[in-house]
Computed example of a mutant assay.
Amino acid sequence: MPRILRPIRTRSGIAALAVATVLAGGLWIDLSEKDDSAPPVEVRRVSDTEDETIRVSREILNVAGVKGKMTEPGPFTGKCAGRDPEKNYRIIYFWSIWDAPIQDLKQGMENLREKLPGKGWNIRSYGPDTSKSRSLELIADFGRKKFTVMIHLYDESKNPAPKAPESIISVALSSACYQVPEGETV
């Protein structure tokens, strides 16, 4: 079962930077169910994978088509299960969109479900997650570019509390595991 950290939601949106900081401090996230212990992994520079992660992330945002505020902590390097952390890495990128009408966020999720397959993504699941709130969840793999994404819509529109969190779309994007070139370290 993959290890997933649920983002922290606040009135002003998601505290993705805090989550990213915690993860960068030594924890890791594995959004795929692939076996990282099976050799070999592709050799690739960290900067090249970071650049590609940003491009893939922008494509996801464009497909969603939602205009709102967006967190910008940027991608960071994560560990690969069962592999030498000095030589192996994956790039992880958490971000979210908020301060948009709930109907726009719902349409964004529908856009993702409908349009990502046309961009080469395989939708593994789409529907309510297993949380108490049964948040809408989309999990997809981009086999050609070796990414996995988990996207949630946290709908707070029916929450009557005066200081209820805002509704958000939360994105967790992860690259495959790579090895740095000979003579380099992560």
Rank of each mutant, 00 (worst) to 15 (best):
N122L: 14
S167V: 01
L136I: 09
I60F: 02
Y126E: 08
P40G: 12
M70V: 08
D129Y: 13
L136T: 14
S32F: 00
G25C: 02
I91S: 09
L61H: 10
C177D: 13
G82F: 13
K163N: 14
A18Q: 04
V41L: 15
F142L: 12
W95Y: 15
S135Q: 08
V41Y: 13
I102R: 08
R3H: 03
S12F: 07
R44I: 00
E184I: 02
E72F: 13
E59R: 13
F142E: 11
R45D: 14
I91F: 00
A24K: 13
I92C: 07
R45V: 01
A176E: 14
H152M: 00
D141C: 04
K79W: 03
E114I: 01
I14S: 04
S37T: 15
E59L: 05
I4E: 04
I168L: 04
D104F: 00
Q103S: 14
P160Q: 11
K132H: 10
A38C: 05
I92P: 04
G68T: 00
Y154V: 04
G82W: 00
Q107G: 02
G26E: 04
N111R: 15
D104V: 01
P117H: 06
I60H: 10
W95D: 05
E33D: 11
G108D: 09
Q179L: 01
V22R: 05
V19W: 05
